[in-house]
């Protein structure tokens, strides 16, 4: 089966279809993770401050944010993408393609990251916060100089987890017009009865997930 003819055919698919889609997936994933990290981090800071046991509790604000975070997280990604397509069209101008996928993926990933980060910050020893208060640190200093510093390993682990989850999400987005490896596996592989393309894409996705986990572990250990 794995003879010269097969290899030539595989290379044709890989070079023409699969290869470019790998980069497409990576671009989507990177953009989504960068944006979601920025927004998610900001949101997590607000959550940890206004939490009932936080530095400056605001019960009502926390409830609103908490509801929003839970609601967005409760959507399966594919439903979220189609549900907010009017918004996507208004913002990006289209609902098809890489760029159009980044918006819903970011919207989905932001609360996900915010919740993971919030939990990581909440794990920081309360006595450290009290010590910081005892020498007159402000709330912002407590957050950035104590909580973030102490939670960095958990934040890295959380980002690794999120990145792999959203690698899967980008491939699902491929089913509704986002392009990338997911679209290739479905359109050229599954729906065209082309197992070579399907399983090549699957294997590449597995390898990508392994690499992301490996990088995450490496950084975690370095810390």
């Amino acid at each position: 089966m794995f003879n010269g003819e097969f290899c030539a055919e595989w290379w044709k698919y890989f070079n023409g279809i699969i290869g470019p889609s790998i980069f497409s997936t990576l671009r989507m994933l990177t953009a989504t993770m960068v944006l979601a990290f920025i927004f998610g981090f900001a949101l997590s800071i607000i959550l940890i401050i206004v939490r009932p046991d936080g530095l400056d509790p605001h019960k009502r604000l926390y409830k609103v944010l908490d509801f929003f975070v839970n609601m967005v997280r409760s959507f399966p990604i594919i439903i979220l993408i189609v549900a907010i397509s009017p918004l996507t069209r208004a913002v990006v101008g289209t609902t098809i393609g890489e760029k159009a996928a980044i918006l819903p993926l970011t919207i989905a990933a932001t609360p996900f990251i915010a919740r993971i980060f919030e939990n990581a910050f909440a794990q920081v020893d309360k006595q450290l916060i009290e010590a910081a208060r005892s020498f007159g640190a402000s709330n912002m200093q407590i957050v950035f100089r104590v909580m973030v510093k102490e939670a960095i390993p958990s934040l890295v682990a959380g980002m690794t987890l999120t990145t792999i989850s959203y690698l899967a999400a980008t491939t699902i987005a491929g089913a509704v017009g986002a392009g990338g490896l997911g679209a290739v596996a479905l359109n050229y592989g599954y729906q065209s009865f082309n197992n070579v393309i399907l399983y090549t894409a699957v294997i590449i996705l597995c390898i990508m997930a392994q690499i992301i986990q490996g990088i995450g572990n490496f950084i975690y250990k370095k810390l």
Binding site: Q127, A131, F135
Partner: peptide
């Protein structure tokens, strides 16, 4: 600022 405090569990940042 004028009052220092120390604790039972030391409360140092481990990182």
């Amino acid at each position: 600022r004028e009052i220092g405090m120390i604790f039972q569990q030391f409360s140092l940042l481990n990182r």
